[in-house]
């Protein structure tokens, strides 16, 4: 049987507009270490003017077909999206004329309903009704994007049912548009920890053949207590160094997902102030590159 050697996935960053992010990442951009750039384009829609360096980076990566789009506020599973969705899709259409995106992704879940036009991303159960509305909304996104579309797995779960259903839900949502999966490994790690799951077994519940992009990030812990019982919850806050368990998941995912093209390292702005912060961030970036290189 014949086969090609797999191409090495490109490693890049999720672009933030804060100046501390630019200060920490500038040497990485200037040496060409950032092979691909991800832009959460809808974060820029409400901004009067992007910082000049943000615009320069978007143009640079767009012109070289190394820019990926990652929306955060579409609210795929909102049952009554109304005018909000129409406006969002019009803005996406314009966005895709302004920049050339290799692909466009969004998040599983919903964050808008009733009087709320924004909140936190939340899950829904897999039912014929929720599947149908998710497929309809993903089709609308696909029609406007003029590029391959995908969805990212959600970190938050109300209970174990959400955790165990999400892989199948995503597989069935993506199928009609032949969409791809953005597998966020820290989100997976949150569910592994918070619901005492096996990382390997939970990973296998996802449509791994559809994974085109991996996300790697850090997060934080919070402690909830009720009476004398305390529970430590892993939170997807993108504000810390990458845990060892996520590096292990990265190596495992690269083995199990045959179509990965892009690995994106995420870290929010306003979290890179000290030399220790910046050094930790850069070390994580180089380690991600090393793990990816060793996977091929």
């Amino acid at each position: 049987m014949f086969k090609f050697k797999r191409r090495t996935p490109m490693v890049g960053l999720s672009l933030m507009m804060e100046s501390d992010f630019f200060q920490a990442t500038q040497p990485l951009f200037e040496t060409g270490a950032v092979e691909v750039l991800e832009w959460s384009f809808d974060m820029g829609w409400g901004v009067k003017a992007k910082p000049p360096w943000v615009e320069e980076l978007l143009q640079f990566y767009s012109q070289r077909d190394r820019l990926t789009g990652h929306g955060v506020s579409y609210s795929l599973l909102s049952a009554q999206p109304g005018e909000r969705q129409i406006h969002w899709l019009k803005s996406l259409q314009q966005e895709c004329l302004d920049y050339r995106y290799r692909h466009i992704s969004e998040h599983f879940g919903w964050m808008a309903a009733g009087d709320f036009y924004q909140s936190a991303p939340l899950p829904l159960p897999l039912t014929p009704e929720t599947l149908q509305l998710g497929r309809e909304h993903l089709k609308r996104l696909s029609d406007k994007a003029n590029a391959p579309v995908g969805l990212e797995n959600l970190a938050f779960a109300f209970g174990l049912q959400d955790v165990l259903q999400q892989g199948e839900f995503l597989a069935r949502l993506l199928e009609p548009v032949d969409g791809f999966l953005v597998l966020d490994l820290h989100n997976l790690y949150c569910q592994v920890h918070n619901f005492q799951q096996s990382a390997e077994q939970l990973l296998e519940r996802y449509p791994l053949q559809r994974v085109r992009e991996l996300h790697v990030s850090g997060g934080s812990w919070s402690v909830t207590s009720k009476g004398q019982q305390t529970r430590t919850i892993r939170r997807d806050t993108h504000n810390g160094t990458v845990p060892e368990a996520v590096f292990e998941l990265l190596a495992l995912a690269l083995k199990r997902c045959p179509s990965v093209e892009v690995v994106i390292f995420e870290r929010i702005g306003h979290t890179l102030h000290t030399e220790i912060d910046i050094e930790g961030f850069r070390q994580d970036f180089w380690r991600i590159k090393q793990v990816v290189k060793e996977s091929v």
Binding site: F116, A120, L122, F156, F158, G159, Q161, D162, S222, I233
Partner: peptide
């Protein structure tokens, strides 16, 4: 199926970002 600790976090997040 909602676990109390996760409901608590959801309430915190919606109050923060809503």
């Amino acid at each position: 199926t909602f676990e109390p600790e996760m409901v608590e976090i959801a309430a915190e997040l919606v109050k923060k970002w809503g």
